[in-house]
């Protein structure tokens, strides 16, 4: 072990932060680039299912809140791309990896948003699950990622409240609204739980990431925390969690649940979800249709650039 590796190990052991200028194992760097870019892509692709209802938001207030929220997601993507850039990859490279399918994003965004209640369910469940994960990541060992998470978590908790507010309006609204709310919960419950990733035993990257403190808590542990927090919220709304086996286990103090449909999970991860193709096509189209804009900006900058001797 040379002195650089020893210094790195010391940082990890003492719970300090690894900074961009520090030496780090190549695999640590690669793991982070994979995770952070995946996280960034998720924020960006996640703009689409919500954008699907932006133009149809039913009040001036909900329209502005939703637009502000989607804009926040774009901002989160921007911070996270910047974090990844400190590890030695460019935004163009990450974009190319997204388009080629090499880089993934969270599968939850491959589900369609079919009614306005889905704007509630996405904020409440999807952002809710993301917060549980991201709060944990505030303690991640890579400094820029950790600091990015602190900022992102503040905004995400506003997002979750925005979602829950819509759920309250819908669940206590007309019978049709309540039906939409239940339908949204039915469709998003299991996909939201799967956002935490495979069971610990089946998670390819988990153990090394835990050792390096990139990841601080296991998938199953975080998922259980989310379930325990969310079931009472569903009860308050008078909605039924779509799992007959959801029950508070008095001994463990946690909610028991049915096994998940992992075939569907892997199927969606591997590209066969309801909207995988649409989400990527949308992103590619926006990028390619606007190539001329970026070229014009670059050409203009080149013409007007001040030459520094």
């Amino acid at each position: 072990m040379d002195k650089f590796e020893k210094a790195f190990n010391d940082i990890i052991e003492k719970d300090l932060k690894v900074e961009p200028r520090d030496w780090m194992p190549e695999k640590y760097r690669k793991t982070l680039i994979r995770q952070v870019s995946q996280h960034a892509h998720s924020e960006i692709i996640g703009m689409q299912p919500e954008g699907n209802w932006l133009l149809r938001a039913p009040s001036l207030r909900s329209k502005q809140v939703l637009l502000a929220k989607i804009q926040d997601e774009a901002g989160h993507g921007l911070y996270l791309y910047s974090v990844a850039e400190t590890l030695g990859i460019t935004r163009q490279e990450m974009n190319a990896q997204l388009h080629s399918g090499k880089a993934k994003y969270s599968s939850i965004f491959n589900y369609p948003t079919l009614t306005w209640a889905d704007m509630g369910a996405v904020g409440w469940l999807v952002d809710g699950a993301a917060i549980v994960n991201q709060v944990s990541l505030q303690r991640t060992s890579y400094g820029p990622y950790s600091r990015g998470m602190v900022r992102i978590c503040k905004e995400e908790s506003f997002h979750q409240r925005q979602g829950y507010e819509i759920m309250v309006q819908m669940a206590f609204g007309t019978p049709e609204q309540k039906e939409m709310a239940q339908d949204a919960l039915n469709r998003f419950w299991e996909p939201a739980l799967m956002m935490f990733g495979p069971h610990d035993a089946d998670s390819a990257h988990s153990s090394q990431s835990m050792a390096w403190k990139i990841k601080r808590e296991s998938n199953d542990h975080l998922r259980q925390r989310f379930i325990d927090r969310t079931v009472p919220q569903a009860e308050f709304l008078g909605l039924t969690v779509p799992d007959v086996n959801i029950k508070l286990n008095k001994e463990t103090g946690h909610y028991d649940h049915s096994p998940f449909n992992w075939d569907e999970f892997w199927n969606v991860v591997n590209g066969n979800g309801p909207c995988n193709q649409e989400r990527l096509d949308h992103h590619k189209k926006a990028h390619h249709d606007n190539t001329w804009v970026r070229e014009a900006a670059a050409a203009f900058a080149a013409k007007t650039e001040t030459i520094v001797a």
């Binding site: 960006i44 703009m47 689409q48 954008g51 932006l54 133009l55 637009l67 502000a68 989607i70 804009q71 774009a74 901002g75 993507g77 921007l78 791309y81 949308h282 992103h283 926006a286 606007n290 804009v293 970026r294």
Partner: peptide, 16 residues
């Protein structure tokens, strides 16, 4: 309507 359709991320945010 331009949200998620901008020429790059910073511009998308500006239009929003």
């Amino acid at each position: 309507e331009m949200c998620s359709n901008g020429p790059f991320l910073e511009e998308d945010i500006a239009l929003s």
